[in-house]
């Protein structure tokens, strides 16, 4: 079976996050993924896009975020591309919830959620483009 690719581009505003979740849900259901995998993909992609908006584009709401769903026989991948500031995965540390509560600063959980929910999380940089691929394998 050939790969199937479905694409969506949104402006870098949180108001479009629900559209992204619906896009991922629709294609994950069509690909007949189990319900828990559909929910996990929705959330991981939401977190990745929210991070692009906040950290890569630093709140600029007019920049593009390109999302592609890639359906393969053995896996379902969502690729998120932006042209903002890159993310260095080497600086990622698993968050300490108690420390976050004590510091009274929200945030820092998104990348942790992506890693907990996905089978594979990959980051690449191609020229000025940052790419994050979130993959769930079929069981």
């Amino acid at each position: 079976m050939a790969d199937r690719i479905h694409k969506l581009t949104i402006p870098s505003s949180t108001r479009y996050l629900e559209d992204v979740r619906q896009f991922v849900e629709r294609h994950a259901e069509r690909a007949k993924l189990p319900e828990d995998s559909v929910q996990q993909l929705k959330m991981a992609v939401d977190e990745a896009c929210a991070n692009v908006i906040e950290h890569a584009y630093k709140g600029d709401t007019e920049r593009p975020i390109d999302i592609a769903v890639i359906v393969r026989p053995d896996r379902f991948t969502v690729r998120i591309r932006d042209e903002g500031e890159g993310f260095d995965p080497a600086v990622y540390q698993e968050p300490d919830l108690t420390r976050i509560v004590r510091s009274r600063r929200a945030g820092g959980l998104g990348v942790h959620i992506m890693h907990r929910l996905m089978d594979q999380v990959e980051y690449r940089q191609r020229g000025r483009t940052n790419e994050c691929c979130l993959t769930k394998y079929r069981r």
């Binding site: 929210a50 919830l97 976050i100 600063r105 998104g110």
Partner: peptide
């Protein structure tokens, strides 16, 4: 999402 969870975490203490 984590943004909602973060609100609880920021205020509980």
């Amino acid at each position: 999402s984590s943004a909602g969870l973060g609100v609880f975490m920021a205020h509980i203490e």
